[in-house]
């Protein structure tokens, strides 16, 4: 019961921010940051250091030594003189990260998306064809609006740009409606937690 009262007090301290920034809010915020970071640290230590380094090494798997040494260089940032050492493991992560991204990303977000936009069965019902045409217009007009920002002199440019804005607003409207929904859901959960206390 006492614990519930403490949590309730901390919840109210967070909501006191709605009135204005204050000591109670700041305290709770920093407290949450501290315990969350500690939890992250613990899991990372158990799942990272112990599972990926300590256990393999204790089983005589020496393959982890080289990446571990490279990883240790990250701690070069503790001192200004050795800070450059951290760039080597970072270079490795950045390099392979960037390389891994290229192929599958092009296929997922460009090739497959273009394919679905332009290919559809000729036996589709009329409303599918109608919807596909609207998707193509929305796609083209939105891209045109963003890509040809400066060339808006000719009437045709203005018409396409306006169409682009129209579809953009529909897209943003849908996202905004959904965002409202998401935020309210978060509050519902907190209220349920508080009701549960009593």
């Amino acid at each position: 019961m006492l614990i519930n009262l403490i949590v309730l007090f901390l919840i109210l301290s967070i909501y006191s921010f709605l009135y204005k920034d204050n000591v109670f809010f700041k305290f709770t915020e920093r407290f949450v940051v501290g315990i969350s970071a500690a939890y992250g640290f613990i899991k990372l230590f158990q799942r990272g250091f112990i599972d990926k380094l300590y256990i393999p090494l204790s089983h005589g798997n020496l393959a982890v030594i080289f990446p571990a040494l490279l990883g240790l260089l990250f701690f070069g940032t503790l001192n200004k003189k050795t800070a450059f050492l951290a760039k080597f493991p970072l270079a490795f992560l950045l390099g392979i990260g960037a390389g891994l991204e290229i192929g599958p990303r092009i296929e997922t977000d460009i090739v497959k998306q273009i394919y679905t936009t332009i290919i559809y069965s000729p036996h589709s019902p009329w409303f599918t064809i109608f919807n596909n045409i609207i998707i193509i217009i929305a796609l083209f007009a939105t891209m045109y609006y963003f890509l040809f920002v400066l060339r808006k002199n000719r009437p045709i440019d203005r018409i396409i740009s306006k169409t682009g804005i129209f579809f953009l607003m529909v897209g943003f409207g849908a996202s905004f409606g959904y965002t409202i929904m998401a935020r309210i859901s978060l509050l519902i959960e907190v209220i349920k937690t508080v009701i549960h206390f009593f």
């Binding site: 990272g48 990926k52 380094l53 990446p67 571990a68 990883g71 240790l72 493991p89 992560l93 392979i96």
Partner: peptide
């Protein structure tokens, strides 16, 4: 494999 180990430190 290397990347996973290095990311632990990162």
């Amino acid at each position: 494999d290397w990347g996973i180990v290095i990311s632990v430190f990162a």
